[in-house]
Design a protein around this nucleic acid. Sequence first.
DNA 1: GGGTGTGATATTGGATCCAATATTATGCGT
DNA 2: ACGCATAATATTGGATCCAATATCACACCC
Lengths: 238, 238
Amino acid sequence: MQKTQTNVVTTLRQMILEEELAAGTRLAEIPTAEKLGVSRTPVRIAFRALEQEGLLTKLPGRGYEVRSVSVAEIIGAVEVRGVLEGLAARQAAENGLSDAHKSELQALLDLGDEILAGDELNEAELERYQQMNKRFHDIVIEAAHNPAIQAALSRNEHLPFASSSALAFDKKQMSKETKRFEFAHQQHHHVFYAMINGLGSRAEGIMREHANATLGYINNPRNTDELTVISERDRTRN
Amino acid sequence: MQKTQTNVVTTLRQMILEEELAAGTRLAEIPTAEKLGVSRTPVRIAFRALEQEGLLTKLPGRGYEVRSVSVAEIIGAVEVRGVLEGLAARQAAENGLSDAHKSELQALLDLGDEILAGDELNEAELERYQQMNKRFHDIVIEAAHNPAIQAALSRNEHLPFASSSALAFDKKQMSKETKRFEFAHQQHHHVFYAMINGLGSRAEGIMREHANATLGYINNPRNTDELTVISERDRTRN
DNA sequence: GGGTGTGATATTGGATCCAATATTATGCGT
DNA sequence: ACGCATAATATTGGATCCAATATCACACCC
């Protein structure tokens, strides 16, 4: 069999997220298919999937367009993630954590402590921290045993990263970013404590607040204060 | 142009929701296409879309299967809806309602009061109430001005109704059901009050709790008490 | 008699062809 | 010169054909 259409989806998604296809770029099936060296069929399926993910907008009769995502939209998506992960933490706490989840979370907490022990994060440590962080969140969602949460999150999986310029870390101010990670990782500890003690409401509250702190910080003039967490009040009205 | 593939999606979805295609039914592209009188292409697209919606499961190499949705899953989906609509109500309250939304919500509240004024709901009144209810919820979500909420809800749109046997109203006990509607509609009034007064946290709390009360009641032996709201504690562990 | 391998069949993924439609450009008439 | 109608073009949706793969059954061998 030839290239599977899943690969076309992946390829296009990556091109969008890495801004090889800039926001606003117009895409049609035939030119895209030719450029990727496949037929229209997998491209059609990919366009639909990416539209579903919120990365493409359909322009009826004129193809598709790479969606430009506003900062307000990203903040909105982060808030959605917050309530969903908050619910996950609550349900995980109420269900009780399995031994396997408990020990893996403990290991991840230790790993995070170790990564943050030094003075200022370098590239490699940043990468390791983010992997640890992703796994931590994934376990919380797993432990909720509620497939609807994963389903609801799937739409928001890529959207928050669609505008990397708005979300990019300020690498010139790595010491400030490092302090934010330290704060965020303290929240990991608190969530874990709440979960292993069956404190559903606390787990939910901390996790909901924490979502803002881990998905990335908005590079926004109004929001450069030390350890400021994005509040819904910062959203621009439309 | 022939039947659009959207119609195939709609047709199949309806067949699943109305249990014309029972849970567990195996579906393959070719027989389904022949049965519907279309080619494989729209069926392929429809299967993918319905898989995305959580109505079909892919059995690799053996086609698709109509998913059987457990009561626990439905309750999980309702809880997800609760936190998302709760967030929507909060953001609507914080953004402030437009005059158009205010007056339409007020009209819907009046309509609900009128429908519920009589003694016991008949079929037609039930239908009218549910339309009013759907519109009320849709406006709250609209007023949040957060597209991520709609995106997250889109996956859960149909799932809660996939198992109608578990969700069916007990028409033999219509007076009891009517009392539940009266309670739920009081919550509508409270959410509206909170929203027009900018009370984000109250709007969120009431709406979150209210989601349980409007999506339908689980026909579950453990949950037949008067005005009982589904709590997350009722979920069966797995 | 059981296990393994091979072949038949079911099923999906991709390519190409055709039909319908929406958008856009062009030209004609006023 | 402007507006409207018409034609050209771009674009998508559906149908069909071909290729690859996975499942399943059956037969053969040990």
